[in-house]
Design a protein around this nucleic acid. Structure first.
Length: 631
DNA sequence: GACACCATGACCCCGATT
DNA sequence: AATCGGGGTCATGGTGTC
């Protein structure tokens, strides 16, 4: 980000810097890996790693399998030597980027126009700056937005922008691109109001034009929420019978706000004529989505909105019990696809109520085998001996990121011991114990003795291999945290299982907010071959966990990881799409910190610090969709 | 009213560093 | 001895649904 913002050799990967140093620091003996700038790491397959004996043709096959042309691969091998697969891969990625450079300018224009900026504005900005700088404008806008609203989420992103929160050049950099256009009000440039500017940038990062955003804020007043502003903008868009912007775009209509927001706005505009028809999204009871293995035929067919159809297939996950309106917004952005709400208690011994927005087929899904333990007794057979009859739990509650304190379990033990002579504790003691058990997922480990789950038990319940998060310098606390933030593998695998027959040769995966690799583990356990996986996660220990798992399971594909979704700008995505031939699956669950009920401090909804990263999921998915449809 | 919830921040302890 | 930072421990309440 920083290098892009500063222009210069921004889009050129600097192949000759400290790569080797960073490679050494990762220390991966069995698997070739490298770190490109921005902390991107590429781990090649073991078969492609730099064993001196590997034949040239085998290596060519390998890279051809990744989507590069044979001719280009041969040339790269010739220039870099067989020994260094990392350099070859770098050269290939670089080549794919440069070969697409000629068309990148018009694509850039298309892209930004598609986001709502005027053609004049985009053309002027591109003329005045290097193409690549402009390609990062959206990312920059989001950076500024994050800086204002999400400080601290991404240390790397912060570092890349500027460490000074009040940096004038940062504030100016986004605005400068438009400062001399007639659509921008000088007042806001010379004397920006922080709150106003933040909203402006938020709206810009959501794909609205600066002009639209400015007008909306002027009309609606200073205290208007983002949601209200977006509604206003879409109302204005609807009011325009002929949208000049859209007329200039030859590809499909803008997907996100145009679909849902227009629909909703139209409705709202007509509120005074007739009552609203659309109902807000409600959670189903029982929470079995479109069907679970034990009850698979609830909904056997659904029709997706046209703009939602894949490929690429996408799969987005977050907590089901988010504040009001959050899932409506998520659904509107994700092409109006109806969320599938599923409780993992239908798949394993622990509850996990989640919403999934995806465009995967829902026919002929199958569950993972072997089936995971279906209840507490199966999952924790040793606890059965101590389990009192009055503890009627068959399933655990949601596995969270922290566990009960030792003091609490001690208090419980004492309370139970006080009524040891009786056949059963009195009702009020039972209630106290059961309340705490449900709250903290305590399990019986001895007479009158309750304890929180061990990390490896959480791994098992979530469908991960034992010790998946162990080692690599991760603390116990962080293991709970990473696990608590993860997918339930069996549940996700059930939804992804349709990919197995659709892609017998394997898939390319873009995995955002990967965490400890729930998506990757699910695909692996399903037997879906992963040709190339681009995995993004802010946490270094999580990235190490995924990479370590990748090596241990002898994956034949290539794992590339990034620390920050902000690194995935249009250029880099295009580069990877050209290299791999596109992504088949864009999967991820953005942070739920500001949505989760457990958070009493900053449950700020989708505009909260961390949870606003949902918009990055949409931004990246939409970029991938647009680029793949053009190619 | 009961229940559930991918959490946060203050504090303490301990080992490493200066 | 002073300082620092990471890990562990602990208490904490509001929102939404049923």
């Amino acid at each position: 980000m920083d290098e892009n913002a500063s222009g210069g050799d921004s889009d050129d990967i600097d192949w000759n810097t400290d790569d080797e140093l960073e490679i050494a620091s990762y220390g991966l003996p069995s698997c070739s890996s490298m770190t490109v700038n921005d902390g991107e790491t590429i781990a090649g397959s073991t078969e492609a790693s730099s064993s001196a004996g590997s034949s040239s043709s085998k290596m060519i096959d390998h890279f051809v399998g990744m989507g590069f042309s044979e001719e280009v691969v041969a040339k790269a091998i010739q220039e870099n030597g067989e020994q260094n697969t990392d350099l070859i891969l770098e050269a290939l990625l670089k080549h794919s980027a440069s070969s697409s450079a000629s068309s990148s300018k018009s694509k850039l224009i298309d892209h930004f126009v598609g986001m709502g900026f005027s053609v004049d504005m985009v053309a002027k900005a591109i003329q005045e700056n290097d193409c690549t700088v402009n390609a990062v404008l959206v990312g920059l806008a989001i950076h500024v937005h994050d800086k204002a609203g999400a400080l601290g989420q991404s240390s790397q992103a912060e570092q890349h922008i500027n460490s000074d929160q009040n940096s004038p050049e940062l504030d100016g950099s986004f605005l400068d691109g438009f400062s001399d256009t007639d659509s921008f009000e000088g007042e806001e440039i010379t004397n920006p109001d922080p709150d106003k500017e933040e909203k402006l940038v938020s709206l810009a990062s959501m794909g609205y034009s600066v002009q639209e955003a400015s007008i909306a804020m002027e009309r609606c007043g200073p205290n208007t929420s983002i949601a209200e502003l977006t509604d206003f903008i879409c109302a204005a868009q609807m009011a325009k019978a002929a949208d000049a912007l859209l007329a200039e775009i030859e590809d499909k209509p803008r997907p996100k706000p145009s679909n849902g927001y227009h629909k909703h706005k139209k409705r709202r505009m007509l509120d005074y004529e007739k009552p609203p028809i659309d109902e807000p999204i409600r959670l189903p009871n029982p929470m079995i989505g479109f069907g679970v293995p034990s009850n698979p035929d609830v909904i056997v067919h659904r029709s997706l909105p046209e703009a939602a159809a894949g490929p690429p297939y996408f799969y987005y996950e977050n907590v089901a019990l988010a504040p009001k309106g959050v899932w409506d917004t998520i659904s509107r952005f994700l092409y109006d696809v109806e969320p599938e709400f599923v409780d993992s208690k239908y798949f394993c011994a622990a509850a996990r109520k989640r919403g999934y927005v995806h465009n995967l087929p829902i026919e002929n899904r199958h569950h993972l085998v072997p089936l995971p333990p279906q209840n507490i007794y199966e999952a924790l057979p040793l606890s059965r001996k101590w389990w009192p009859s009055w503890d009627t739990r068959s399933h655990l509650n949601c596995l969270q990121t922290c566990i009960a304190s030792a003091k609490l379990t001690e208090r419980i033990r004492k309370a139970l011991e006080e009524c040891d002579g009786e056949p059963e504790p009195p009702h009020h003691v039972q209630k106290f114990v059961m309340d705490e058990c449900r709250k903290w997922n305590l399990v019986w480990v001895g007479r009158n003795k309750l304890a929180p789950l061990e990390p490896d038990e959480v791994e098992m319940l979530l469908g991960f291999p034992k010790n998946h998060t162990r080692g690599g310098g991760i603390s116990r606390t962080d293991r709970y945290k990473s696990l608590g933030n993860s997918f339930q593998v069996d549940t996700v695998a059930y939804h992804l299982s349709v990919l197995k027959e659709m892609y017998p040769d394997g898939i390319n995966v873009l995995s955002l907010f990967s965490g400890i690799g729930g998506a990757e583990v699910a695909l692996h356990r399903l037997g879906v071959r992963m040709k190339n996986v681009v995995s993004v996660d802010i946490s270094e220990v999580n990235r190490n966990i995924v990479r370590s798992w990748w090596e241990q399971t002898n994956q034949k594909g290539t794992l590339i990881d990034f620390a920050d979704v902000q690194q995935l700008d249009a250029n880099r995505i295009e580069q990877m799409i050209n290299a791999f031939g596109g992504f088949d699956l864009v999967i991820g669950g953005s942070p739920c910190n500001n949505l989760a009920g457990s958070n009493r401090h900053s449950r700020d909804g989708l505009e909260g610090k961390e949870s606003s990263l949902f918009y990055d999921y949409f931004r990246i998915l939409d970029l991938v969709k647009n680029m793949m449809q053009r190619n």
